[in-house]
Design a protein around this nucleic acid. Structure first.
Lengths: 249, 249
DNA sequence: ATACCTATCGTAGCTGATACGCTAGGTATC
DNA sequence: GATACCTAGCGTATCAGCTACGATAGGTAT
């Protein structure tokens, strides 16, 4: 009773490849896959947190009590794992930012909450932060194109996250007075670069007395971004616009 | 610049380092060493410029018509070469900055010239820039300390370069009115991070119509750093009630 | 109920790059 | 001529990233 040899299996089904044949042998694994994927990401995060951002795939897999091939099957390559972890971390950070942004009174407060969320995230797991923000893990040796293809995936995602509100703010009517905006599309990246650099120096600072709190640093960075450090710029600006929030508890 | 003796060789004098017997056989080589070292750095720079920031030591040595071991002797490891190249690049940039700073009218113009020099340097050789800016080439896999030990060497040097004038400016009498300065020691790093991020996005932008010139971008960044983007910041800003609802992946 | 198929798992091995030691041989000074 | 110094090339150790193959447990069709 051999069945027809031409009709091998349902993968290249001639009639309808879409719905009406829910093969249990495949569908059985979908739930398992998503669950396992989540678990793998979670374990990878723990492993990186414990082993450092340079943890190898083997180390990560060993921490998960499995082997490298599982990770490679689920994430393709190491950059895929990086991206997956970054997605989760970004989602949590985004959640925090959204919650805080609801209570924000203005763009300044909104941005302050973002910076704060960023710093808190980095502080919570510096190793995971370093892993996620790393530029091309696999591309570093193979690419000879010159400039980095883009920023790291996580930073690119953060940039995309803040780009829209920033753009809206930069183009708001009351803000068009200045002669700025020669290149406003660079501001989100620039701002994140500032946050990142300050945050990483802050992370590297031992938690001694001189180290500011997350709140203080976030407030400071927000001030730099919104007010700058130049006090009035003597030639063109009289003394009208001194800086505002002198006393802000 | 001190030329460090490589690491294990007989560069340390055997008997007494202070005895006034200048052995000609030793002193003759010092000049040769410095000259050769300079040549090796120069050739490495050309090789990286041609091959990309991920060029291997063998590629670099082949471009210099020599072998890897020469580079390893002179620079210890790849990070040492990175540091040496960074030193030269930084020196040239510093020269340019100093020349420009002499003609600067104030801190703003001085900083503008610095940013401009940075951008021009990066633009001149994007590959060398990427090589020099890269964080730990050898530490990435061996170190599990967590945070990067410091910033990249080049960026740390640039930070050190601008830290002193910045500190002097931040503590200048007319600027001490604001309640800022909760963490002024983070500003140089933060500012360089902004310059770096904006510059790298700028480098990655194809030189089409929308791309600003170095001058424009430098002017823009200087404006962001000195004036910020929030002009006045009226306490109640109604136009940003609900922005940033984002799609979560 | 039996033979077949699907998707996963994990062991083991491959590829390529990097760091670096070792030895032979050349060259200029004393 | 003797000696200190350098160079060159080969070879090795290691390790990250990645892949191929056999084995197994669970669904499916006859």
């Amino acid at each position: 009773m051999k069945l027809a040899p031409s009709r091998k299996n349902a993968s290249v089904v001639p009639g309808d490849p879409s719905v009406p044949v829910p093969d249990g042998r495949s569908s059985r694994w979908t739930e398992h896959r998503t669950e396992r994927r989540r678990e793998l990401i979670k374990t990878a995060r723990r492993a990186i947190d414990a082993l450092g951002p340079g943890a190898s795939m083997e180390d990560i897999a060993a921490t998960a009590d499995t082997s490298k091939s599982v990770y490679y099957r689920y994430f393709g390559d190491k950059t895929g794992l990086q991206r997956a972890v970054a997605e989760v971390v970004l989602g949590q950070m985004q959640q925090k930012v959204l919650d805080a942004a609801k209570a924000a009174s203005g763009p300044r407060e909104g941005f302050h909450s973002m910076v704060l969320a960023y710093l808190q995230m980095a502080q919570t797991s510096p190793n995971v932060y370093a892993f996620v923000t790393r530029v091309g893990i696999a591309e570093s040796s193979a690419s000879d194109d010159g400039a980095h293809d883009t920023l790291a995936h996580f930073l690119a995602a953060v940039t995309a996250m803040i780009s829209r509100p920033v753009r809206a703010f930069l183009l708001s009517p009351e803000r068009s007075a200045g002669p700025d905006d020669a290149a406003p599309e660079y501001w989100p990246t620039a701002a994140i670069g500032m946050v990142r650099s300050a945050g990483e120096q802050w992370l590297a600072t031992p938690p001694g007395p001189g180290r500011p709190t997350e709140e203080q640093l976030a407030r400071q960075i927000t001030g730099w971004l919104f007010d700058g450090i130049g006090p009035g710029e003597p030639p063109a600006l009289p003394s009208t616009t001194r800086r505002q929030e002198k006393d802000m508890p």
